[in-house]
């Protein structure tokens, strides 16, 4: 379903999802020609991240994990500076010191990407603790994968968040709906015996809901309630947004196995490829959102393609900016060890 938003906001959301997707596609393509190093892509989770993070206000914080590019883009971080950071350039968000695994932009409320699984859970909880002590009605969002629930940091942090009624939303993006254990109806996650995963939060006495991560409307509504609850001082919420792992993320190095996103599939059945049919028919959240927008009359195919063309051009510029940017000077290696 569509989020209850005005037409302009819906189109903005559509554009944000395309930025997230086209950024990753541009990066994967670039990695074919240029040694980018290892990275993780957010493809397949756009319908979760875009509406969820679109609800944050200035001053709210998000903390994220290795599958982070989409999160930062959703909060308006410049794709050119992100691309430059991933390529280790001086013009990057972190001056080339962080790379894909530590992208951060404080001015956009994204201080930390942690590459240690679960590493951001205590940090996000601490930001919420700080907000609560400062009484400023800000909220902290902890973006985490289902794997981080396997870490002790989760259990310690969620306990404290509940005890202190902290203004935090744990948004767990469980992209393992198609994992072997899940298919066999054994485990809800890749390697977690607990079932359902929401039980791992519910036991601490907080709202804990599992939602369809491909459904932008459900994400928007659930997140909206959680944020209001946090701002009101009523405490944390746990949301498990269920998606699948994009086929191109299954190999060690991301590959465009499903091809570049072809928006025409959303309105033209004959454009449906023979391979990865399930992905294109029901699992690609962007195609689903596009279909919903068109059906509701909020967008025409022509408008969709026009927005997409603009986004593609922006990504081309971002890649060029990154490639044209200088590497940091050697002496920068020893800057910022101490504040």
């Amino acid at each position: 379903m569509l989020p209850e938003l005005g037409e302009d906001q819906l189109r903005e959301l559509f554009q944000t999802m395309l930025v997230m997707r086209r950024f990753e596609e541009a990066l994967i393509t670039l990695a074919g020609e240029f040694d980018v190093g290892h990275f993780h892509v957010y493809i397949g989770q756009e319908a979760t991240g875009a509406p969820a993070l679109g609800l944050l206000e200035d001053g709210d914080f998000g903390f994220t994990t290795h599958r982070n590019h989409g999160h930062l883009l959703a909060r308006g971080v410049d794709p050119a500076r992100m691309m430059a950071e991933i390529l280790g350039r001086e013009t990057g968000t972190n001056q080339g010191k962080g790379g894909t695994l530590h992208l951060s932009s404080l001015e956009h409320g994204f201080p930390v990407t942690s590459a240690a699984t679960g590493g951001c859970i205590p940090l996000a909880t601490g930001a919420a603790f700080g907000f609560s002590k400062l009484g400023n009605r800000r909220v902290s969002v902890c973006l985490m994968g289902d794997g981080s629930l396997e870490e002790g940091a989760w259990h310690e942090s969620v306990n404290i968040a509940a005890l202190e009624k902290l203004p935090i939303i744990y948004l767990c993006e469980n992209n393992s709906l198609e994992a072997l254990g899940q298919r066999a109806n054994e485990y809800p996650s890749s390697s977690m015996a607990a079932s359902p995963l929401t039980g791992l939060a519910a036991v601490f006495g907080m709202p804990a809901v599992a939602i369809d991560g491909f459904d932008a409307g459900e994400v928007h509504d659930t997140m909206n309630i959680a944020i209001a609850r946090a701002r009101a001082g009523d405490g944390p919420t746990f949301i498990e947004a269920r998606t699948v792992r994009w086929p191109g993320s299954r190999p060690l190095w991301p590959q465009l196995l499903t091809g570049e996103l072809d928006l025409t599939i959303a309105w033209d059945e004959t454009a449906l490829p023979d391979e990865h049919v399930e992905w294109h028919r029901s699992q690609d959240g962007i195609l689903r959102f596009t279909r919903e927008l068109i059906e509701a009359g909020n967008l025409t195919p022509e408008q969709a393609l026009e927005i997409d063309a603009g986004v593609k051009a922006q990504m081309k510029e971002a890649v060029q900016f990154a490639l044209d940017s200088p590497y940091p000077p050697p002496e920068a290696a020893l800057d910022h060890v101490y504040a």
């Binding site: 205590p122 002590k133 400062l134 940091a153 005890l163």
Partner: peptide
């Protein structure tokens, strides 16, 4: 609580917000 890891991380997170 007796949660050294989370408390350390919380303190870091809180230090980032003032």
């Amino acid at each position: 609580p007796i949660s050294e890891g989370a408390v350390m991380g919380m303190a870091v997170g809180a230090s980032l917000v003032g």
